Computed example of a mutant assay.
Amino acid sequence: MSQSELQRLVEVMDRLRSPGGCSWDAEQTHESLIKYLLEESYEFIDAIETDDRAGMREELGDILLQVYFHSRIAQDHPTDPFSIEDVARAIADKLISRHPHVFENLKVSGTQEIIENWEAIKAREKGRTSAIDGIAMSQPALPLVSKIFYRAEKYGVELELAGYTTEEEANESAVGAALASVIGWAHANGIDPENALRAQARKMIAEILAKEQSGSR
């Protein structure tokens, strides 16, 4: 029986991190690899948006490398080590737990109930009582605010949004309030603000390229 490529990757990473392997790989830490995880994730998004199938395969490999790299680093922790097997076991267990309609034959009415069940199970597992529990504060500001609106809605917390006009003085506080209001407006109408902003950015890039090609400014 041929060896699994995933197991082969485990062995490659172990070789790189072990004595006689690669000194650069051996020196890396969870902290030093953060920038690479972010870069590879954004590069995968670019590949999706340009429908680059070869690029998607390559960038997914780079993201997978980060998972295996961090897991191999974790094996060397002096008091709380874990391996890629532990990581895989935990996520498999989580998927089974969060999908009772699949693994426990729980009857659901549709996708919305599936999402509600997921959130309820997640809150119960993690002992969450606040709308902000578990929100990743290190994520970019726009998706962070969007997540806050989402959580507030799920937890029944009504957020007050300050109104604004374009004539108001532009300062950090006013701009922050205006952005939060726009994100709330998008959320209330079922529009993903990140996707909307990225789509607008693509339109702006296309406009700039068209003007450059035509020689107009």
Rank of each mutant, 00 (worst) to 15 (best):
E58L: 15
D62C: 10
E5I: 13
I132R: 07
T50E: 02
D25F: 12
M204N: 07
K154F: 03
F149Q: 04
R8S: 08
S23W: 08
E160C: 05
M56T: 03
E168Y: 00
I84F: 13
D86I: 06
H70L: 15
G127T: 05
S214W: 00
P78T: 08
D80N: 09
G127P: 05
S83T: 12
T111S: 13
A177E: 01
G110M: 09
K203H: 04
D133E: 07
S130E: 10
A180T: 11
Q3W: 03
T79H: 03
R57C: 06
E59N: 08
S71L: 12
V12P: 01
R217N: 08
N195M: 14
D25W: 09
S214D: 09
I48N: 00
E5W: 11
A196Q: 06
C22S: 12
P19F: 14
G176P: 00
D80G: 01
Q28R: 15
A201D: 01
E153S: 07
R128N: 10
A141P: 00
P193S: 06
S4Q: 11
L37S: 10
D46V: 09
R198A: 04
V182A: 13
P81V: 15
E116A: 15
S214K: 11
S18N: 11
A74Y: 04
I205E: 11
G110D: 04
A152F: 11
K154P: 00
I205V: 14
A174S: 15
S83I: 07
S146H: 08
L159E: 00
L9G: 03
E49Y: 05
I34V: 15
G190Q: 03
D52I: 07
Y155S: 08
Y36F: 14
